[in-house]
Design a protein around this nucleic acid. Structure first.
Lengths: 326, 326
DNA sequence: TTGAAAGCGGTACCAC
DNA sequence: GTGGTACCGCTTTCAA
């Protein structure tokens, strides 16, 4: 900027005015400055600006795994929404480790992201997130951070799970099984609890079964084999997320079993499989958009108490749930 | 940092030493400083450090669409590899628009990312990328930026396409069709050209057909219907990427047609469909890793001429390509 | 309309 | 081993 100023025979301040489109610069002067900028290929150093202004025009995102389609859709929608606000997105994967999550939170805070969106790695509240929330707006997505007074945007886990159980019960299934992902994941637990509650409140006559992971594929197969035998076999399954759904589909094919199935989270080709898979759809884009809006509401000075937004789910009925119990 | 210095009764410089783990600080002093840091919840302002040191410990990534599984795997692997080097990843989607790509490149450069990884939006060389390459190492992934002297990491499009055609020819297919994605995409064109070349060099007796997008689903259906009729019908298809593969699968099911199929890019559940889909697998993680390594090689002072790395592809034979021609 | 100078929060260099 | 100080590139404030 100093170079530009010298070459254009103006002060640094005037260059700054031109770059920032402030008015109060004679058009002739502005034009000259712009020419020199072009000529020198000058780019404003955003970092210096950030330092002085205290705002970095970027927000941070931490998820478990950016390669998981659900999270990548979330990230994509957050990036788009952030761009509407002239902000860039810095994203990273915690890979299920709360330690890594802490490191990433600290790294992002050190970089002065203006807001932080986190899918908490574990049900345990994270100390790093608590610290971050003192400085910048933090929004938890998909899972809350219990005990932390921050905004959250969650899917309707209870409603979604219940809609699946109701759907199966209406098809006369009396004994339903639930397979959730790793017990350390909040949504896995929550959906499992909601499943049990739904079975009870619907007064399902038979015993239902539940399991939480993590498990290896062969464990899933063994479990389904066991659940399907005996005097009171399970006849329908609800899975806790897209990963487990795929595991279960593979296990079912291997066993040649015919459980009715409702999977949590929609996934590509769910409608294309044979039979097409009924799912509880929870739109990641809707969650992401809401989260970003909340970040900017806080940045705009909204100091009301932390809120939790619950985004409704949609039961998409396809073929896999339509098998009648024997 | 000033606050920490005051409370710990040392100079700012000493705090800086402690924060940066430089030696030459008495353990006792360091401990005291660390205590105050903890107590104040102090975080080093990375932006200020960036400004002074001229290094931002972050790299940028621009792809077409972060929600596309191939790109999200790429992004994920780049993020992991960057983290090994203590760098964060700033990523954004250009959404196929070269204008948006330019804006994003400028935004990332302004933020002083230390290196930039780009999947160029169009076959046209981008002016913004050219400018960026003057300041920082730039690596093109998946597609090159023709006319720009930057490193590139590409899949073996020619070899991959050829392996597919050879595979089909060996199964006695004489007339093969190629459906590529949007003609503006470099890989779409390249694979199409490679397809034609492979057909010729193998001396396939019948006429082959090619088409490039973008197209709507119903156009795909119409095209397949046409290709499958007449005196010299196409009996096998090669698709140009994962998006087109899915379009073709749906169209084939709708038509009840039985083309043999090889798809470019592996995708989740490809092995689970009926029949399972033969694909040309191009590992996004391998490309991403190589790209990051190249960025850091340049940052470490490697000033040799720009290189192009070609990552081999793997033909994964499943069921869809095993249908014999009628 | 334009400019000079202070300062954002660190780090490099050199003195003590 | 520790501290002082200039300075990174930009914005803010205030004066001309």
């Amino acid at each position: 900027m100093a170079d530009v100023a010298t070459l254009a025979h103006v002060s640094i301040k005037t260059v700054s005015r031109v770059v920032n489109r402030e008015d109060g610069v004679r058009p002739e002067t502005a034009r000259r400055v712009r020419e020199v900028i072009e000529q020198l290929g000058f780019h404003r150093n955003e970092g210096a600006s950030t330092l002085r202004k205290g705002r970095s025009t970027s927000i941070g995102l931490i998820v478990e795994d950016l390669a998981n389609p659900w999270y990548s859709h979330l990230a994509s929608s957050i990036e788009q929404e952030a761009r509407l606000h002239q902000h860039l997105l810095v994203s990273a994967s915690a890979e299920g480790s709360s330690e890594r999550e802490s490191q990433l939170v600290d790294a992002l805070v050190a970089r002065r992201v203006e807001g932080l969106i986190v899918v908490p790695a574990t049900a345990e509240p994270s100390e790093a997130i608590r610290r971050a929330a003192l400085d910048i707006p933090v929004v938890c997505v998909d899972s809350p951070s219990p005990g932390l007074a921050v905004d959250a945007v969650l899917g309707d886990n209870d409603g979604g799970t219940r809609s699946a159980v109701e759907h199966l019960a209406a098809r006369r299934h009396e004994r339903i099984g639930f397979l959730g992902d790793d017990a350390a994941i909040w949504t896995a637990q929550r959906r499992c609890t909601a499943f049990v509650a739904a079975c009870e409140s619907l007064g399902l006559p038979g015993p239902s079964r539940t399991a939480l992971g993590p498990y290896r594929p062969d464990e899933v197969t063994a479990m389904l084999r066991e659940w399907g035998c005996g005097p009171a076999p399970v006849t329908a399954l609800v899975t806790g997320n897209n990963r487990v759904t795929l595991d279960v589909l593979r296990a079912m094919r291997q066993l040649g079993s015919t459980f009715a199935l409702v999977g949590y989270d929609d996934f590509e080709l769910a409608d294309f499989l044979e039979p097409p898979v009924t799912v509880i759809h929870q739109d990641p884009a809707a969650l992401g958009q809401r989260a970003v809006q909340q970040i900017f509401a806080r940045l705009d000075g909204d100091t009301s108490a932390p809120r939790t937004f619950v985004v409704p789910t949609l039961l998409i009925v396809r073929g896999s749930s339509l098998r009648r119990p024997p």
